[in-house]
Design a protein around this nucleic acid. Sequence first.
DNA 1: GTGAAAGCGCTAACAC
DNA 2: GTGTTAGCGCTTTCAC
Lengths: 375, 375
Amino acid sequence: MIPPTEIRRGGAAATVTDVARAAGVSRATAARVLGDYGYVNVETRERVLAAARSLAYQANQLAKSVATGRSKTIGVVVADIDSPYFARAIRAITGTASAHGFVVILATTDEDIEVERDAVRVLLTKRVDGLIISPTSSSEVAHLARLSEIDCPIVLLDRRVPQLRADTFAVDNFRAAYEAVTMLIGRGHTDIALASNALAHPGQHLISSVRERIDGYRAALDDAEIPVDPQLVVMGGAEPQNLAHELRVLCSSPARPTAFLATESSVALVILNVLRELHFSIPDDVSLICFNNPDWTSITTPPLTVISQPIKELATAATEKLIARLTGAASNVRKETLLAATLIRRGSVSDVCHVQRSAVLTSPQPLKPPGKSMS
Amino acid sequence: MIPPTEIRRGGAAATVTDVARAAGVSRATAARVLGDYGYVNVETRERVLAAARSLAYQANQLAKSVATGRSKTIGVVVADIDSPYFARAIRAITGTASAHGFVVILATTDEDIEVERDAVRVLLTKRVDGLIISPTSSSEVAHLARLSEIDCPIVLLDRRVPQLRADTFAVDNFRAAYEAVTMLIGRGHTDIALASNALAHPGQHLISSVRERIDGYRAALDDAEIPVDPQLVVMGGAEPQNLAHELRVLCSSPARPTAFLATESSVALVILNVLRELHFSIPDDVSLICFNNPDWTSITTPPLTVISQPIKELATAATEKLIARLTGAASNVRKETLLAATLIRRGSVSDVCHVQRSAVLTSPQPLKPPGKSMS
DNA sequence: GTGAAAGCGCTAACAC
DNA sequence: GTGTTAGCGCTTTCAC
């Protein structure tokens, strides 16, 4: 009864046609039950499913995608995964995506705009349904602007690009920096340095997160009527050695600050190394606050006061928004979502006693951080 | 002259057909130049390329894939990206892959075998050309064994599964643990504990890396004729609170060890917290060595002596091997590549003075670590 | 060299 | 309900 054609060709996967033949129905019918659409007799369905099972049929999503025009794939483009910050983001993205039946293609750019452009091109070639990106540049975004024309939804994560009018999920960095610096000022600090691993290319825009942190830092000083000393803003670039060098110079100069705000935890690491090398102690000689809250900041001596960013929530929300857009469940208006960061007070900040003040604890203060909230 | 059909339909991407029409050639010819295969007159080629350019033609890789049967995509399945260890691996994989024109689909399992099975199934559905996986279980591998049947090359990263006969890239964990423990013994320690965030499910196999580290630990003790105290092997499970609890109990008992070997840096973090809480100091009261070498281990007080694993090299080699297999450039025999780990001596190990010994430095020793090598 | 035509595995009108 | 048929965008064989 069974025709010889029934014999599967060497190792190749079973197709709808194979299943249809095995079940004795047309391809359309088989496709209907396998694709789970349209009406089909419950008995016929069983027969098809049985055939599919026995042939270990697995749908070819690629073929499905070219037929439907949707790939159930989202592209993710970030600078680096090494940072625990982005690692957590990616983790949240893949989790959320797969819960919705989407798969994630990952690309890293190393903060290189050329690589980013290329990554986006490749992802388009793979026909991703949408893109989550943490853009390297806030100005060179032509390759991103193009996306809306070709109807590939894009959501920005962690970094804003106002001119793009895309859904954006980021931290309120200005406020976070402002509050941290204001806190330092309240503790008596006036010589507060800001350290970053960004680089101030002349004429080049900084990525928004760093830009906003610096702005917040400046605003806090301004509001306290403390002049901003340009020397105290050190942009070391991605090379730790260089950053370390600049910090060493700064700390050995008369302009030596009494407190540091680090724009990244990796910067804090460099600061810690330099301070140790110079035999400065934290928080007695200098206070330190850094952005991000990787595990290790709680076990240093002293534990670090940090600005914790809700990256997981951000990434999850970004992914859900993108998927909503893809399934037509999102409103047409592009929205910017700014989440508040949380200042976690630990032991790396102390008072500066210009004037004799009443004794204040300088040791670890397990204060309950203010609740974070969606804005 | 230009037919009205020349007008692009709303926003949709240009296809080979469009380009062919614009260039006044057949689809086959256009396909040849766009796909860069077969012979075509150099002049015709120019015409086609010009047309492609003006239409902003971008090949549809999906369609190409269903036609050719190869997707230029590799699937990566790991437990978690949060760990800096795997993050670095993924980074290396995406980098290497993209250098070879491949793209990476990422899936995380959270050490859940069901999730892993599902991830593999989904990736197959996407017709990945091959798989890099760090399997959750060393015993439940039927879903992986199936892969070789359907001709989907797989390479194992970081964890071994002997019964799978797949290319494997891992660290020589046995030797690494053996050497670390032997070093501790040489420093006078006899009560050496091993702590892990794995869980000893009854009848369940541990993942190979943990298994081998424990074996190495035991072997070192055996060879030194030190009895292995089961109490000193604490398997806390993934829940840090639980691990912390077990450690607290152990450290408060008479069985308190003088040294710890942590199978993960995240475990070291927990140990550090517990020790601080108990007011034990490192390395005076207890010594500590941990696997992995995240940045932060060099800035704790004291800096941690660690076992650094060449994960980047491993991941790069794994990716290259997979791609070689995909392009038919690899020999048929499956090979296991074990790279040596490197013991980096810093400040968290000190001597135990059962017997009075000559003074030995216990402060940070920037000894040059032994060179690592491919095996 | 180039074109016509079949095919990859799937979806989706449209008839019956 | 089910089958027929025409696509999706690309490759590839085979004539001319």
